[in-house]
């Protein structure tokens, strides 16, 4: 569903320049895709491993706030849609783990790093889904922001990541549409339902804007990601695109974006008030409303699944022995 902290790569190791680095950059500049067995700078590998695995963790953790409402969806239609969406998020996580693994780190290591709290996932999933309107808002805004971020990633220089993103983007468009449909039903419903939709928008708006990452002047590592064509647009450019696309959608719903400073300038762009980056830092540091709950839920699922993994491995081993024995007869 979502990528964040795209620009949190380590400062590039500029110590020794490998003679192959120039050829690598030339391939990137020529819009060639880099494939797993190709030579690549260690920092490129490291940046991508982190970015793709964080993206994968976000998909998996992102199942929690929505899974919360599957059993309480207001109708069968809403329930099957939400179930399908949560299944998609799981699939997206798996495509992304597979892409990350091509860089040389196993999925198990990546997952263990997330469970140990060493790897991050998108901070947006550390907010709670308090009402049914939150499910609509998550689909409309969180998935909307994710799509804005992910479309340029379909042209990322790393082949397996770009291909995974193409698949994800194809599947993701239904997510945003189902969210907007929920919002539309609530906005056209009773005064109470409309108030519920407005309340969800009020709570999610600012965290969603933070999904695009720190403002351009504060993000230190965009440089190498841009040069390597992992990142095609800056955080602020994507954020602006998102706001411009979303304001008319909110107007159509008859909901108010919780920003008194929101104004349209001469060239049609919607200008928003300053973002509270302190809140963002707090959530990233583990102090968001649900950080502990999310990690605890992932750990519990992982631990409770251990016997299944062990049983499957034991069964595969038994079958392998039997086949060897039969072949020997």
């Amino acid at each position: 569903m979502y990528t964040q902290a795209l620009n949190s790569s380590d400062a590039e190791d500029r110590g020794i320049e490998d003679p192959r680095a120039a050829g690598f950059q030339a391939r990137i500049d020529a819009e060639e895709r880099i494939e797993p067995n190709d030579w690549m700078p260690a920092a490129y590998r490291k940046t991508l491993t982190r970015q793709i695995s964080q993206h994968a963790h976000s998909e998996i953790v992102g199942m929690l706030p929505e899974g919360n409402w599957i059993t309480r969806a207001p109708s069968l239609r809403r329930k099957v849609a939400l179930l399908a969406k949560v299944q998609d998020e799981c699939g997206h996580g798996l495509y992304l783990y597979a892409a990350a693994e091509t860089l040389g780190t196993s999925r198990e290591e990546l997952v263990d790093a997330m469970l140990a709290g060493k790897a991050k996932y998108s901070s947006i999933f550390n907010y709670p889904t308090l009402t049914w309107a939150d499910i609509g808002t998550v689909g409309w805004l969180v998935d909307g922001a994710a799509i804005m971020n992910q479309i340029p990633l379909c042209r990322c220089s790393y082949g397996p990541y770009a291909r995974a993103m193409i698949r994800v983007c194809k599947e993701e468009s239904f997510h945003q549409r189902q969210g907007y449909e929920i919002m539309l039903a609530l906005a056209r419903g009773s005064a109470e339902q409309k108030a519920m939709a407005q309340d969800a928008l009020n709570r999610w708006w600012w965290p969603v804007l933070m999904m695009f990452g720190p403002p351009d002047q504060a993000s230190q590592h965009s440089d190498s990601s841009t040069r390597w064509k992992i990142k095609r647009f800056s955080n602020d450019e994507l954020r602006q695109k998102f706001v411009d696309a979303t304001v008319p959608q909110a107007q159509y719903l008859g909901l108010t974006i919780p920003d008194p400073g929101l104004t349209q300038d001469g060239d049609g762009h919607w200008r928003y008030s300053p973002i509270d980056w302190n809140e963002f830092k707090q959530v990233l540091a583990g102090n968001g409303p649900c950080n502990r709950e999310r990690i605890a839920a992932r750990r519990k699922a992982h631990e409770e699944g251990a016997w299944v993994r062990e049983a499957a491995a034991a069964y595969a081993e038994k079958r392998r022995h039997r086949q060897v024995a039969q072949a020997a007869e």
Binding site: L94, Y95, A98, E101, S106, R107, E108, E109, V111, D112, A164, R167, H302, R309, A312, A313, Y315, A316, R319
Partner: peptide, 30 residues
């Protein structure tokens, strides 16, 4: 550390008459 589960490559025939095409990978014990 979580033990590794074997990796598989997946090929899908999308329509009758077309070849199986690589579409990704996954982990499974058998």
């Amino acid at each position: 550390a979580t033990p590794n589960t074997p990796l598989w490559e997946v090929f899908i025939r999308s329509r009758n008459g077309l070849a199986h095409k690589h579409c990704g990978s996954l982990h499974a014990s058998d």
